[in-house]
């Protein structure tokens, strides 16, 4: 193991981690927004949008991110739309994550009984108030473990971004291997980098889950 090599190239990994984290974070936030929006569209059974959402979910969940990125990066320019590497990465991640987040929110919303909605309506709440004060708070606590798992998943998916020429962690590792044949060192640093990014998310998720279990509502 060449420790000197490792020490020399750590800054490259730090730089790449920064990119992975920032794009991952933006992608996660956008996925959460898209997911919540779609969950609402399904909950309120909005005509037309509801069908579009269903098609989107199937499309997003049944195609690999790699293929989605190819489409954005190589396909769209042929139609006259060209998007930067970062743009492709963010849109791709959000396109993939949105459907997963939507499903997580949906399962949370569905776990809140119909009776809760009815009792709130019977008190004179508007439907939007029912969602805000009664359904969402309960749904979120059920959804959180799934939402955390999705975040973890999305960060891991960033490892394919090198195909749109982004210098992310995977890209740096491949580059170093190609240049210096230091396969062991490059891969070790890659694994450690991902662990440093992902472990906190997993630990946070576990903590949250435990707290939620203690605060379990039940009737």
């Amino acid at each position: 193991m060449d420790t000197e090599f490792i020490a020399e190239y750590i800054p490259l990994y730090v730089e790449a981690s920064r990119l992975t984290i920032s794009i991952g974070l933006i992608g996660i936030v956008l996925s959460l927004i898209v997911g919540l929006l779609i969950a609402f569209i399904q909950y309120f059974k909005v005509p037309v949008l509801r069908q579009i959402a269903a098609v989107y979910i199937e499309l997003s969940r049944n195609t690999p991110l790699l293929v989605q990125l190819f489409f954005l990066y190589f396909g769209l320019p042929k139609a006259g739309i060209s998007i930067s590497s970062e743009g492709c990465a963010i849109i791709g991640l959000c396109f993939l994550g949105g459907s997963y987040m939507a499903e997580a929110f949906r399962s949370g919303i569905e776990s809140v009984g119909k009776g809760q909605e009815e009792s709130a309506l019977a008190l004179g709440f508007q439907r939007s108030q029912v969602v805000r004060y009664v359904i969402l708070p309960q749904a979120l606590s059920v959804s959180i473990p799934a939402l955390c798992a999705n975040m973890n998943f999305l960060v891991k998916e960033t490892s394919v971004f090198s195909v749109v020429a982004l210098a992310d962690l995977m890209y740096v590792a491949k580059d170093l291997i190609g240049l210096y044949y230091k396969t062991d060192e490059a891969l070790l640093m890659l694994v450690i980098s991902y662990l440093i990014i992902l472990l906190p998310i997993s630990i946070l998720a576990a903590l949250l889950e435990r707290r939620l279990r203690y605060a379990e509502f039940g009737n």
């Binding site: 009984g113 009776g115 809760q116 009815e118 009792s119 709130a120 309506l121 019977a122 008190l123 004179g124 004060y133 009664v134 708070p137 309960q138 606590s141 509502f217 039940g218 009737n219």
Partner: peptide, 16 residues
């Protein structure tokens, strides 16, 4: 519904 109050079989208090 503000003029017509209702109480349900399963209470349906808000658990949170």
């Amino acid at each position: 519904r503000q003029k017509i109050g209702m109480v349900f079989q399963n209470y349906e208090l808000f658990p949170h």
